[in-house]
Design a protein around this nucleic acid. Sequence first.
DNA 1: GCGAGCAGCGTACCT
DNA 2: ACAGGTACGCTGCTCGCG
Length: 794
Amino acid sequence: MVVHTALLIDVDYSVREGKTKVRLLMKGKKKMFRLYDDYEPYFYLDAPKSEKETIEKTSTNFRGSVAKVVRVEEHEIQFGAHKKKLLKIYAEHPFHVPALRDALKDYEAYEHRIPFGKRYMIDKGLAPFTLVTYERERQQIRKILKVRESGPVKLRMLAFDIETYNPHGAPRPELDPAIMVSYADEKSGVFTWKETGKKFAHKVNDEKEMLSAFCELVKNNDAEMILGYNSASFDLPYLKKRADVLGVKLPLGRDGSDFRKMQRGIRDVVKVTGRLHIDLYPVVRFLGAIGALKVSKFTLENAYEEITGKKKHMVKRLEIWQMWDSDEERKELAEYSLHDAEVTLEIGKIVLPLEIEMSRLTKTPLFDVCNSSTGQLVESLLMYRSFEHGMLIPNRPDEGEVKRREANPIQGAFVKLPSPGIYDNMVVFDFRGLYPSIIMAHNIDPYTLDCDCCKPDGHKSPTGARFCKKKKGLVPTVLGDLIGKRAELKDKLKGLSRDSEEYNVLFARQQALKILNNSFYGYLAYARSRWYSREAGESVTAWGRQYIQDTIAKAQETGFEVLYGDTDSIFLLMGEKKKEDAISFMKKINSELPETMELELEGFYPRGVFVTKKGNEKGAKKKYALIGEDGRIKIRGFELVRRDWSDAAKKTQRAVLSAILKDGSKEKAVSVVKEMVGRLKDGKVPLEELVIYTTIRKDPAKYELLSPEIAAARKAIKRGMKLGSGSMIGYVITKTGASISDKAEVVDFAKDYDANYYIEHQILPSVMKILKELGVSEDDLKFKGTQKGLGGFF
DNA sequence: GCGAGCAGCGTACCT
DNA sequence: ACAGGTACGCTGCTCGCG
């Protein structure tokens, strides 16, 4: 028997010759390969021992064949705060588990809805990107000897993108051919079947040859990771459909198969056999949503430009077919196509290190990490750690329970109402990792709740809930490990050169840790969570409110005026106080806090703006702009950070804020607005600056109420555009129509703009709230010519 | 019949 | 398909006035 070591990449299972095999995708020194292992599916049943023999004889019909109980064992397991005796029911195939559970539904079942690949990994202590040492015979594992951490992961990446012929707007895969397939690894190029005159383009005879040339490339380059952008929903299914229509194969997989398309929740995912197919679109969306990347619009162009700060070559989507038909423009199309693949590769190189670290950390295969929500990531880690502690993994709630939980949300954070105005000299403090540190400080966990051992003592939450002081809960244990790891990493990073490979890996790791640490509270309060606890979640926020409000009170006692605060932050006016006073206040607070908690200095700000709410003299929460000592402007909540406002309005608002904060000049602020109003009136503003973007979350036909974006989308659909649930609509308010919705047109179809709308509904509302603080009225802005009494303000 | 005022829908943001 | 708190635009309804 020979001993081997290889890197674990992915795990799933298959049924071969009636036997269930766990399939492991491994990476050896040179190649990726598959290994097989045997593992017996099982689940638990809360049934008395006396039922063991009856249960052993249970069998049921499963899709025309028989699913039977293989054997039953008695098993004692930690169940919440107590131990419990359960029956462990073994089955022949993973898909027999739900069938048998249903046949035995007189008893409560546990751990019956854990994907078999995950079950195997948990039970064997395997994790992706670890080195596995094993004995094997052919491709079959005999014995796993050792699992250990691995260094940097290097997989051969190949990014690709396709162009399609689209004379009718959206391309129709059964009729419209694919015209180009571009790729990028160390080299990049384009396969196409018409002359482009470009050196990087490989011209073949027809579409069929283009498909096979691309598959050959994947095979010859031995691509281990195939990267695309929206490739699971568009490129790969499109190529497959074309291959079907043309009667050829699409051998992308290592075994010559094409791919398997599956549904993950509402999402399409595509697995290519023996390679890792990663669609970067959901990855960018995910990282954008949690704020790890600052991306406002998730097209490839926009994501690339916002992530890298570089410009991307663009063509108009609707004109691709014309470019293909024109001998002159086809060159440009080929360049665009090439660039798409290169840009996809570049995005991949930026986001994958973080995803790989997330994969290691949550012990979830990279493919799944790239298609997961934070909830699934936290759940994965907790399941793994729960098993390690010999604890039963709680069930997911049924739909009824989910509805009940959702109907009864818990109270969240405290937000202090600011007084509108322009202020000088502020200091901002925030609690470092407020919710995670509260969970740690008070041992908050579903199973430390109301423990018997501390009664009536314990950590008492402001809600009245009580948490154990003696035994650490699962959530605080796991979270504590992660927080500890992150602190260690941050220390280590200080000593490393910023462009070393080690720095990059460790930086990505601490980023992954941060994301995960901040997700535990959300998971406790998540309606579909296995570890949901209303009391625990409620206690986290209640303590949070208490800490921030206590800090506000203490700041006031110390003589600071507290202007604003949100969840974990406080904004203080320095008044006559010095920086040292602020620092000593912070130190005093910290000396009184539990050990895991800390108030940090966020920064000193020479000037800041807070505005009123619309139609109301009260201050607006979550909307402010500050200028730091380094001159950098920090803006939150204003229209200019929102994608559903036109660039023209955002640009003007930014200029106004900058004039006030940087230059302290009211005149400058006013003149910027007047200039924009003038240019709008004169019809000089280009349409691009007037586009309003918004996402539609439903099928456009399913809205009961008409809104501008829906009206625009419906009109565009009639003209052949493909817009559905999740589409980003970019529309312009044109001159034609009665209501705003009537006037709204998707930008591709807009011919003019309604200057009055943009002045009255975009520019003025976005700047008036700010200028009002300077005593400027709306009329001051609408008329050309010099105004009396608009001198400098400061 | 008409405009003001408001509720409700919907989206995006903040922490 | 991690949480809740918040602002705000647009539509379409209600209501008071004439």
